[in-house]
Amino acid sequence: MKYLNAEQVTKRMDGRIAKNNILKVLFLLATLFGLIVLAILIYRVVVDSIGWIDWNFLTGRQSTDAERAGIMGALLGTLWMMLVVAPVTLILGIGTAIYLELYAKKGRLQSIIQTNIANLAGVPSIVYGILGLTIFVRAMEMGNIILAGGLTLSLLILPIVIVAAQEAIRAVPGFLSEASYGMGATKWQTIKNVILPAALPGMLTGAILALSRAIGETAPLTVIGIPALIIPFPEGIFDKFTALPMQIYYWTIDSSLVAEYANLAAGTIIVLLILLFVLNSAAIFIRNKFQQRF
């Protein structure tokens, strides 16, 4: 006796196929929703910024006069801050990942640390701003200088860098480290010669993507009191500064006073987007170029 009735199966066939097609359209719409909103956003920004991005805009000083205003100060501030964030997060992030993955005994303490790192990655960025304000700006009396801003953003992206680095280490096949241990290598020799070279592309990719998140962060900088005043170009990490997202923020707010500020904000957004695009391309390049086959 057959359990499947051929007649019934044929009768239900059309309904099943229709359902399949409807769902396909629904998922396509879900994809399009994000894409279309993003496209509109970029279109608006590009239209608003047309005619505003020129050499004077890129290299000029901050000014209340929209025609003369430039973003060099904010651009330099952002770049200097990245010079703080990149080494701090790379060294602390990769160091932490190596300890947790390769040295720490798997146990309660390790799992508590691990859970907390995962949770820290979800803490709102403004909370890190308050932390940075309390520790770096006030307790350590740095004031709102580049170093303070950079360390605050480092704290913010450190959990992401750690988790990415841990995943990169975990992706290194065990048979490679076994081969090294099997020849009498110590743990550090194995880490240095086998695990790190294999994991580094993944680590760097994660770190660069985290860095590009830090570049766009505004909330923590607002909290530690970064101004958008007319101040001299920063020349080192101990100078006061402003950054690209701050510049966008203030110009957007003040566009109710001076309409052209909206165009300046749009121009700054384009510059920031290009910076992010370059960073993300670098991440993809590193991943493809240095990935090892095994």
Binding site: L176, A179, Y181, G182, G184, T186, V194, R293, F294
Partner: peptide
């Protein structure tokens, strides 16, 4: 020390595992 032991006692594994 295991490092000494493994210098005297080498090992070849099931799956060929050269370094990249």
């Amino acid at each position: 020390k295991v490092e000494n032991l493994r210098t005297r006692v080498g090992m070849v594994f099931q799956k060929p595992n050269p370094f990249p």
